[in-house]
Design a protein around this nucleic acid. Structure first.
Length: 263
DNA sequence: ATGGTTGGACCCCAA
């Protein structure tokens, strides 16, 4: 089974890019973040036409918004409210075989990396803490789980173009990285990317729109992640970053990341 | 040190 995670930054204007992704990678399941559309306006027919008859979504007007597109029927699509917010930033489903798949969109957190000065950063920290509480609950023990999404945190030194220059930049600050590492320890989650890409090798999934030439400057960050519980690690077959999607016409600032897993 | 771009709503906000 091939599972993709992609922050698409508006699903409606990027239907042609989804079509390209399907032609090039033929995923079984596509987890989207930042659909930016309320459910009544969700482009359901356009997505079924791409070969995904099973479409689950939880959106809101203008901001945030989650979707999961699938070739096979999935069970129990359920959005969780996160960090006491009404934001649509999570959608969970059950895959055949009782494997849970959770799609998350962690808040970006604004510019000032101080929760006392910046409510958006405080919200981001509380959001990741809520993920940790959720993963620590007795109900999750021994479960087979996959979490994917835009975590908006690049934890490792080589998950950013310059560790030193980004230490005080939201997405790579110690406060965020510590919290993400705490989440990782809850169930000893496997970071699928780093099973395939050596830790000392730079790997990114996002490049700012504000760079004239994203490829030449290559000031990227690895904000998008696919993690599994250790009981699924033996089933993982592959991982890749669809980097050239950043060069498509009218691209998202994030590129799709892919995992192949034998389920 | 600063400013650079994008999408979607509305004449600005979040990213």
């Amino acid at each position: 089974m091939r599972i993709v995670s992609w922050n698409i930054n508006s699903v409606r204007i990027r239907i042609p890019l989804l079509k390209k992704l399907v032609e090039e990678q033929n995923p079984d399941i596509i987890c989207l973040q930042e659909t930016k559309v309320e459910d009544a306006s969700f482009p359901h027919a356009d997505l079924t036409a791409l070969g995904y008859p099973h479409v689950y979504f939880s959106g809101q007007k203008g901001y945030n918004g989650m979707a999961i597109l699938s070739r096979i029927p999935l069970e129990n699509p359920t959005p969780m409210g996160m960090a006491k917010s009404e934001d649509k930033r999570h959608l969970g489903v059950l895959l055949p075989g009782g494997v849970a798949l959770h799609n998350f969109y962690v808040p970006a957190g604004g510019d000032i990396p101080d929760p006392a000065q910046n409510p958006a950063f405080d919200f981001k920290l509380r959001f990741v803490e809520h993920m940790t509480e959720w993963a620590s609950a007795p109900a999750q023990k021994n479960g087979k789980m996959i979490i994917v999404g835009d975590f908006n945190i690049a934890p490792g030194e080589h998950d950013v173009w310059s560790h030193k220059q980004l230490l005080k930049i939201v997405s790579h600050t110690p406060a965020e990285v510590d919290r993400l590492n705490t989440l990782q320890k809850t169930l000893n989650w496997t970071d699928v990317a780093r099973k395939f890409v050596p830790h000392e090798e730079k790997s990114y999934s996002w490049w700012s729109y504000r760079n004239k030439d994203w490829k030449a400057s290559n000031r990227g960050r690895r904000l998008d992640h696919i993690w599994t519980t250790p009981n699924l690690a033996p089933a993982i077959r592959g991982y890749s970053v669809h980097t050239h999607a950043r060069d498509w016409d009218s691209p998202s600032d994030h590129v799709p990341i892919l995992m192949d897993i034998a389920l």
